[in-house]
Amino acid sequence: MPVSGSAARRYAEAMLDLAAPEKAVGAYRVSLDRVAQAFDRATIEALRNPRVPLGRRAAALAAATNDEPVAIRSLLRLLLERDRIALVPAIAAAYGELVDAREGIAKARVTTAVELSELEREGLVRRLERASGKKIRATFAVDPSLIGGAKVQLGDHLVDASLDAQLRSLGKQLATGT
């Protein structure tokens, strides 16, 4: 199935609007993530199985999610009735992103040629936070093919300050002679 991000985002936006006045933004997020984890392919298929009457599927779903907040249970029931239960993991992800955006948190992926020390990591994150004006939640990775320097991806934006990229751009300049 293609990534139908926009449908999931609509549901996530609705959930966020419901959660905000009830001060349950964080609680819903935890709940949605927990539910999403349980939704593997087999679960989704079982829940969409038309040979089982809708009432029994709804009952099973309700029983399994007894501990979740009421709003989440209602959402799941609605999705089941509309045959959109497969969207649950996407909704959870979209909800997480929306909450992050609301709180000014950006995700960054930092790739370096060598493993960074804890101190270096903290320094880098602080500098990124200052540059972007957002709180940064960073994940770190090591890729020796970069040779040196670092590659930082912030959302859709990539800053490539690796030696590998610079060598490639030098190569291109030499080839075209400009």
Partner: peptide
């Protein structure tokens, strides 16, 4: 001369 003139700059682009 070309290498001397080369200024290593961080490439910045949107990615997808």
């Amino acid at each position: 001369a070309q290498i001397r003139r080369f200024e290593g700059q961080a490439e910045s682009a949107d990615v997808g």
